[in-house]
């Protein structure tokens, strides 16, 4: 103690103290901070190498040979495996040409190739990983607690998602030709990945916004809604009153006028 006390006015003391403080704060932060950036999953070095080859052949022209990004495409360092899996498995990437938004397209790679690409990009920097199977498993309705989970998913969906994706997940328009796509084709894994990576105009819903359980409930709600029989009949695209009004004018009035003409032609 004495030795420390004697050196407390040493010119280096302040620097040492500062260093110590920074180390403690940083260490504590890394210890307490939520783990939203999964480290690259353990994959074989071969897969990473395959992924790199695929990347150089298919992606590097826009994203740069080291995925550092160019004028035509953003950097992929740190986007994580989830992002690659989402973009490539929905056919959004590789992009056919520059556009306001990458549309869903024919998938160009098989599963192994997508996994290799994801592994390569994940090896460049930590980012959201491909979600665990247990969070992308759809909760089946039946038991009260499952039904409750689905209903909770519905509430989360209406508060966070419906304003762009529409109440039935039928999609909606955004500014300047951008749009929120329909969700009926998306797989549970893709929906989860979209939530954690926030592709294109979509905001990121990380695990602090919506917990993995919440995401699973949203996915289950969408599945349950999709599986519901259309009790009311044909849904007219689930687009709300616009398609209903159009239908009333074209078919409702059309059929009734045809009836009136027919009746007018009838001999008295």
């Amino acid at each position: 103690m004495n030795a420390l006390a004697a050196r407390r006015r040493h010119p280096a003391a302040i620097a040492v103290l500062l260093l110590l403080g920074l180390l403690v704060t940083g260490g504590a932060y890394s210890f307490f901070a939520p783990k939203d950036a999964n480290a690259a999953p353990t994959v074989s070095a071969d897969a990473v190498q395959d992924g790199k080859n695929l990347f150089l052949a298919n992606c590097a022209s826009c994203h740069g040979v080291n995925a550092e990004g160019t004028k035509s495409g953003p950097t992929l360092v740190g986007v994580g495996a989830a992002s690659v899996d989402f973009q490539v498995s929905t056919g959004r990437m590789p992009l056919a040409g520059p556009n306001v938004q990458a549309p869903v397209n024919k998938v160009k790679f098989d599963e192994t190739e997508i996994a290799a690409l994801a592994a390569y990009v994940a090896s460049l920097g930590a980012g959201p990983g491909i979600p665990e199977e247990k969070w992308t498993t759809v909760i089946q309705p039946g038991t009260p607690e499952n039904n409750k989970a689905i209903a909770t998913g519905g509430e989360i969906f209406r508060v966070n998602c419906a304003m762009c994706h529409n109440f039935a997940g039928a999609g909606g328009a955004l500014t300047r030709g951008k749009y929120a796509p329909a969700l009926d084709e998306a797989t549970p894994r893709q929906i989860y990945e979209a939530m954690v990576t926030g592709p294109q105009s979509m905001p990121v819903f990380n695990d602090r916004n919506i917990s993995p359980e919440g995401k699973q409930q949203v996915i289950s709600y969408l599945a349950a809604q999709r599986d519901q029989t259309n009790v009311g009949g044909f849904s007219l695209g689930n687009l709300g009153p616009v398609s209903e009004g159009l239908f009333a004018w074209v078919f409702g009035l059309g059929i009734l006028i045809a009836g009136a003409v027919w009746l007018g032609k009838k001999a008295a």
């Binding site: 209406r158 508060v159 419906a162 304003m163 762009c164 994706h165 529409n166 109440f167 039928a170 999609g171 909606g172 328009a173 929120a180 687009l239 709300g240 009153p241 616009v242 209903e244 009004g245 159009l246 009333a248 004018w249």
Partner: peptide, 12 residues
């Protein structure tokens, strides 16, 4: 708090 995309009134 929520609102849905495609919120329109009935046609009239």
């Amino acid at each position: 708090s929520p609102v849905t995309a495609g919120s329109q009134p009935d046609w009239y």
